Computed example of a mutant assay.
Amino acid sequence: MPEGDTVWQAARRLHTALAGKVLTRSDLRVPKYATADLTGRTVLDVTPRGKHLLTRVEGGLTLHSHLRMDGSWKVYANDQRWTGGPAHQIRAVLGTDDRTAVGYRLPVLELLRTCEEERAVGHLGPDLLGPDWDPERALANLLAAPDRPLGEALLDQRNLAGIGNVYKCELCFLLGATPWLPVGKLPADRTAKLPVLAQRLLEVNRDRPTRVTTGRRGQDLFVYGRARRPCLRCGTPVRVADQGDGSRERPTYWCPSCQTGPAPAPGSPATRRVRSHPAV
């Protein structure tokens, strides 16, 4: 699933292509909005909110989309061939005199009144890359359920908006805690720096084509995707296991030496299930 920095980049591309321009083409290919026509309206802005995209148009309307695992927005010049996937995967087309934005495989696409945007994104916690970022509120949200595993709490967009599975794993590594450590058991000094570190990681990566958390050229991430490879700090093989709240299990990477706290035992069901996961 795209994380907050990726969605921020998508919003910037869409805003640059569409904002301030009149739509000359509008095609929403979902049954509920098949007859909706935004042609003739000016695009006011495209704003990211956590992992959500809000495309606001003249007349008090907002096109809300979410990329989830496979969705994407591509921007093309009007004489350029569309290459984001087969035509049957297109869910939205927004065109101007010189650019066309095409939304592929969008699992969430809805047209709502701008004054009702909170219905779609009001449940989100402070946005790590947004003007509403509030580290104290984000920390209070995380600590409200002290027994919850740190990794699950970080992924809960109601606590803070923008962290996905990659940043979850990398943050836990930088904090020296396993993703299964209860939030309330994190040492006080590391608890205090958690929201600041999270925001810093997304902020430094929002303008980069490749996400980097290590500061090392050619070694972009500390643990994510590095199962059975040596830890970049201590050389211990990185481990991977499933973690989830029951709704979705995600491959979770950690160093058993650099990170303290509970974790699935080698050979446990969570570890066995993830061995064939494509992210490993």
Rank of each mutant, 00 (worst) to 15 (best):
C255V: 00
A270P: 05
R217S: 11
A101V: 15
G4W: 02
P2F: 12
G246V: 11
G59T: 11
Q89W: 13
H277G: 04
V204D: 10
L53Q: 08
E136W: 12
P230L: 02
K21Y: 00
H123V: 13
D132C: 01
G40D: 06
A87V: 14
W254I: 08
K51L: 10
R137F: 07
V183A: 08
W8Q: 03
G261S: 13
V183D: 07
A241H: 11
T6K: 06
L61V: 13
L150W: 10
C169P: 03
G235N: 04
T96I: 07
G225H: 00
L112I: 14
R275Y: 12
D5E: 15
C255H: 01
L181N: 08
L160N: 01
T271W: 14
H88I: 11
H52R: 10
L174N: 01
M1G: 15
M69L: 15
H64Y: 15
Y76D: 09
D147H: 14
D189W: 06
V204R: 14
P126I: 00
V43R: 13
L175Q: 04
R226V: 04
E3Q: 05
R233F: 12
R248M: 13
A17H: 03
L139A: 07
D147C: 03
K193T: 14
A270I: 12
G84S: 09
L194R: 11
G125L: 00
K74G: 14
G246M: 12
A144V: 08
T6P: 00
T6S: 13
V121E: 09
A270N: 09
G71M: 11
P107R: 08
R248A: 14
L150R: 12
G246E: 13
V204E: 14
E249D: 11
D79T: 07
T213Y: 03
A263N: 10
L67T: 09
E152W: 10
D27Q: 07
A10L: 04
P269C: 07
D132N: 01
G261Q: 12
G130V: 02
P187Y: 06
K185D: 14
L61I: 09
L28D: 02
A192I: 06
A120W: 05
A144Q: 11
S268M: 02
T271S: 13
R148D: 08
D45L: 10
A144P: 05
R13G: 02
A11Q: 02
G130L: 03
L124F: 02
L139R: 09
T83P: 02
D207S: 14
L155R: 05
G235C: 05
L232Y: 10
R137A: 14
D156A: 09
L44N: 09
D70F: 13
C231E: 03
G85R: 12
Q199C: 15
W8I: 00
G122H: 09
G50H: 01
E152L: 15
D127Q: 03
G218N: 04
G60P: 01
